[in-house]
Amino acid sequence: MDKGLSLRNVVISKDGASLVSVHHDIAPGDVLTIMGPSGVGKSTLLAFITGTLAPAFDAQGTVCIDGQDITHAPPHRRRVGILFQDDLLFPHLSVGANLAFGLRPGGAQSTRLEKINNALDEIGLSGFADRDPATLSGGQKARVALMRMLLSEPCGLLLDEPFSRLDAALRAQVRDMVFERARARLLPVLMVTHDAEDAQAAGGQIITLA
């Protein structure tokens, strides 16, 4: 297949013991959920895909995004976006500057500014460009983090327990927004979680690790 995120014969092990093995193609707009209790190496799989796996781990297999082998590409050339359970907004940048960090370079200053303002409108945070991210509510931060990632125009999306820090009311709302945007942009999504409800809401195939 051409489009989508493909994990071919991926095996991650540490000290000779295999932690995760996955062989799966995620089509554009689809979600693959990997479930399992914490500590079984779900996050190492994501680290392998982002190119930030610690040297202590051994990894085999290939990762392809839209038909291109990125297994050995440097992290910043992989075109894979990631969201963690923390928003990880850069604390030294304003909300607008955080979004500008994600926005691909190029274009006139005014066009960039317009894109950022449009993005803020889209997530219901009009006029928030100059705000300190630390002053935002949890839900607002999550929305900015999502939008920052989308502005970088990734070809795939990784979710690392993305909703576990949000309280119940907010959780469904943010979750729906993330999956909706990913589907609208035809992004293949790989989510790792230990939460059955999140896995169900994702609506895709579920692989359970023991």
């Binding site: 680290a47 982002t50 190119g51 930030t52 440097p74 992290p75 910043h76 050339r77 992989r78 075109r79 894979v80 976006g81 990631i82 963690f84 923390d86 990880l88 850069f90 030294h92 960090f101 994600g102 691909r104 920052r148 990632m149 970088s152 990734p154 990784l158």
Partner: peptide, 21 residues
């Protein structure tokens, strides 16, 4: 270091991560 992972996923080079984040 997840800050670095996020920044790299936003296409910041290693030096970009160092200097800008």
């Amino acid at each position: 270091v997840r800050m670095g992972t996020v920044a790299a996923a936003l296409r910041a080079s290693p030096n970009g991560v160092l200097w800008r984040v």
